[in-house]
Design a protein around this nucleic acid. Structure first.
Lengths: 346, 346
DNA sequence: TTGTATGCGTTATCAC
DNA sequence: GTGATAACGCATACAA
């Protein structure tokens, strides 16, 4: 096994008696290079086992062809689908994707942000950590005019691109659906700060109740410490222990909805007859649980693609910051399944 | 908003009246630099808003601090957990992770392999595309002495690091468990080529049957075109249509096992009394389905971490190729749940 | 302990 | 159409 020395454009140039600049241009099909030369260059490049060094090219051109993705975690079905969408769009455009998990920690998010910058990514897509309140660590990208897209968990006060669903409308729709099924005491699980997506969903829930002239009972609204199965189980037990328990639950996440259903079943409470449940996200588990969980579709992969495309487009036609407040809303729908079907009209 | 010019070590050097080499060293806490100097340099670097350019450093040092991950897809729970493990280990070591999806296409795998090389990743972790038979496109990494780890779906004839579970043993254990529950006609779903993990699991299944002196009925072994819910549903229906249907199914994937359970339930067949089912992977859905699906634990995140650590270790202490055949086996266990519990002894 | 000089592999700006 | 040459920002061998 010989010492593996890299074949560079310099070596090709030498072999062909041409200049490195000619090689460089030929390899990129530059119009000012003769057709025969181009072919000859490409041919010998192949023969010599030439592999372009993207690092060198990036350093020189100040363009990296990689975009950074910073998310709380990647194991959630919604987020892995999101990444998939990003990756597909980027791959098509010849861009690479580097992925980082903040694990919902503000501190890590800040560090990873720096790291992304140090790698001079061409663009960045981020869904904020649960902890994050201050977003000044993204200022770096604004100043260097690096396209930045927030997706799903977006900051309230930060002027950039956002790709989101209308969480308010979705919460409203979910609640309205339960009302249409005859529920009158609808509970709601919530989480996070007033900047979170859950806050918006809750607002939709509240407005739907108001519109239907249903009383708002604060005891039916339970704030979870985390979006987990166990937290939802505790909350559901608490709700079902009430002397006047709810007849419906709007759970703003499928894991919560599933937990609620299983909890009810354990207690011998019939779903949906005695308790209708609707979740959120359309995760795989929602379709496995018996009875199937009604839910809100969340176009994860599309959101990923949309985010990537915004960046790619911006990279092609750089603009000033004025239009940077653009928000892309993606559509959600109520997916009615067994867990909330109480009358035949639907 | 001013023209954003990059602050480089040269600017710091100028400001401080020092040489760039001193700055470079000071920033990295090189031992040969005075403590005061280090502090002073770091201080002004911060003040000036200096951001190291990893590209330049990588080009110069020929070390990229990024490792490439090439997988069929990232949306499968098993694979997203795998990535998570990789990412966590890499993040700890200050490495970045770039992720690519082959979507089980050989052609894409080849292209992405090139792309990874062109980016001069320091190491690569790969789970092969279903289509892939020939693995010569990885030769590139061998020749350049880039650590390469195959995980889960590994090639048969290629001398590198592998991180796998013992699929044969797992298949054997799963089948043996069903036998212990009194099953005598155990069906099996399989897929892929003779190089696939499913082939190994099937071998384990066959040997367990033999050992128990149970007849091997080829009609009970169904080869799926793809590992999907629908394929498993068709297969299960076919099995249950037999005049002498099976009393157990070993499904080498939870999605298949869940499908089998739901199919049986639809037909009014009791699980596990009339049909015991065991899956594979311990995906979230296995714990949601009613009855809960017994399964084989697959330490996805650990496998990811192990893979990353092999690379990181190799990067620290480069060795010659001799030991490159090392295989890391990770442990699996039978996770007994309702879908296969037919007697009380267990 | 610090400085000098050079090169990593490419692209871009000139000039011819 | 093609060539010479200077960057890109950093790290390192060698001097001092």
């Amino acid at each position: 096994m010989k010492d593996h020395t890299e074949v560079t454009i310099y070596h090709i140039a030498e072999k062909l008696g041409l200049a490195t600049s000619t090689i460089s241009r030929a390899l990129k099909d530059h119009h000012s290079i003769g057709k025969k030369t181009i072919e000859k260059v490409k041919q010998t490049a192949k023969e010599m086992g030439y592999r372009p060094n993207n690092l060198a090219a990036s350093l020189r051109s100040k363009k990296t062809k990689t975009i950074g993705v910073l998310l709380p975690t990647i194991t959630q079905p919604f987020l892995s689908s999101l990444i998939s969408g990003i990756e597909i769009a980027c791959q098509k455009a010849g861009y690479n994707v580097v992925i980082m998990q903040s694990h919902d920690s503000y501190e890590q998010e800040v560090n990873l942000t720096q790291s992304l910058y140090n790698n001079r990514v061409s663009g960045i897509i981020c869904s904020l950590a649960m902890e994050t309140q201050d977003t000044s660590h993204f200022q770096l990208f604004i100043e260097s005019n690096t396209p930045l897209v927030f997706v799903d968990r977006v900051p309230k006060h930060f002027s950039t691109f956002r790709v989101v669903i209308d969480n308010y409308a979705a919460g409203y729709k979910a609640t309205k659906h339960l009302i249409s099924q005859g529920c009158t005491r609808i509970a709601h699980l919530t989480a996070g700060s007033e900047f979170s997506i859950y806050f918006e969903r809750k607002k939709g829930y509240l407005d739907a109740l108001k519109e239907a002239n249903l009383a708002i009972d604060e005891n039916l609204i339970i704030k979870l410490k985390a979006v987990t199965y166990e937290e939802a189980e505790n909350a559901t037990n608490k709700l079902l222990d009430m002397k006047n328990p709810p007849d419906g639950i709007f759970a703003p996440g499928d894991i919560l909805g599933v937990s609620a259903i299983q909890c009810a079943k354990k207690r011998g409470i019939k779903v949906p007859e005695e308790l209708a449940v609707i979740g959120f996200n359309n995760d795989p588990i929602s379709n496995i649980i018996d009875p199937n969980l009604s839910t809100i579709t969340h176009p994860a992969e599309k959101m990923g693609q949309a985010s990537a495309e915004i960046i790619l487009k911006h990279l092609k036609h750089p603009k000033k910051g004025e239009d940077a407040k653009e928000i892309t809303f993606l559509n959600t729908e109520v997916l009615v399944r067994e867990s909330s079907m109480r009358n035949k009209t639907e």
